[in-house]
C-alpha cells in the first residue's frame, strides 16, 4: 500500500552514497538562496532538470511525482509577476525549480534503507544526550508502515457500517470510532514489543 518513491537504477546519482547526496542538496539550496540573477539560476534548472529526467523515469511519471510542488511554485511565480516584478518572479521561480528537481533526484535515487542509515547517523549526537534512540525511530517507522493498511481497512469497515444502517457517511461521525478503535490496540502492541525485548534495556 505504501511504497517509497525510490526507483532502482544504475546512474551516477544512484551509485553515489546517500550522505554526500543529502549534503550536496543542503549545500546547493543554501548557495542558490544567495544567487539572484536569472542566468545562473536558469543554468541550475537545466542542470538539475536534466539530472532528474535522466534517472530512468518516463517524462510523464517524473513530472507527475513533483506535480503538487510544481503547481505551487508556478502559482507563486505568476502571483509575483503581478505583486513584485517579472524579473524577481523569474529568479525566485527558477531557484525553487532547481531545488525541487535536485530534491526529487535525491529522493528517486536513494532507497529507504539508505535514508534510514543516514538518519541513524544524524541522530547519533542526540542519542548520546539521551534525547532519542535511533532504533526507536526505526521501530516507529516500521509500526506506521505495518498499521496504515489496517487502519485504512478499519476506515472502510466503518463506512460500510454507516451505509448499511442508512446513516450518511460523514467524517465527523467516523473520526471518533476510528481513533478509539485504533488507539485501543496500543496497550497490547506495547506489551508485545516489551515482551520480546525489542527496545532493549
Amino acid at each position: 500500500m505504501l511504497t517509497g518513491l525510490h526507483v532502482t537504477g544504475n546512474t551516477a546519482m544512484h551509485r553515489l552514497p546517500a550522505g554526500p547526496k543529502l549534503a550536496a542538496l543542503a549545500l546547493a539550496s543554501l548557495v542558490l538562496f544567495f544567487v539572484h540573477s536569472a542566468l545562473p539560476l536558469a543554468l541550475a534548472v537545466i542542470l538539475t532538470g536534466t539530472l532528474y529526467l535522466r534517472l530512468g523515469l518516463s517524462v510523464g511519471e517524473a513530472l507527475r511525482r513533483v506535480r503538487p510542488v510544481l503547481i505551487t511554485i508556478c502559482l507563486f511565480g505568476l502571483l509575483n509577476v503581478v505583486l513584485v516584478s517579472p524579473l524577481e518572479a523569474l529568479s525566485s521561480t527558477l531557484r525553487l525549480l532547481a531545488i525541487l528537481f535536485f530534491a526529487a533526484t535525491v529522493t528517486t535515487t536513494t532507497s529507504i534503507a539508505d535514508f534510514m542509515a543516514v538518519l541513524t547517523r544524524l541522530l547519533l549526537p542526540l542519542e548520546r544526550l539521551g534525547v532519542v534512540k535511533a532504533s526507536d525511530v526505526g521501530l516507529a517507522v516500521g509500526l506506521v508502515l505495518r498499521f496504515v493498511p489496517e487502519i485504512a481497512a478499519r476506515h472502510a469497515t466503518l463506512r460500510e457500517a454507516h451505509r448499511a444502517r442508512g446513516v450518511p457517511v460523514k467524517l465527523h461521525r467516523l473520526l471518533g470510532p476510528l481513533i478509539i478503535s485504533t488507539l485501543k490496540d496500543a496497550d497490547s502492541i506495547a506489551e508485545a514489543i516489551d515482551a520480546r525485548g525489542i527496545r532493549g534495556h
Partner: peptide
C-alpha cells in the same frame, strides 16, 4: 515521525505527496 516518513521518500501526505521536494518547497 510523519516528517521522517516524508523525508525518507514515502508518499504519506494527502494527494500522495512525499519526498524531499515537499520538505524543501515553498510550503
Amino acid at each position: 515521525l510523519l516528517v521522517v516518513l516524508v523525508a525518507i521518500s514515502l508518499p504519506v501526505l494527502s494527494g500522495g505527496r512525499g519526498g524531499l521536494g515537499v520538505l524543501m518547497g515553498p510550503t
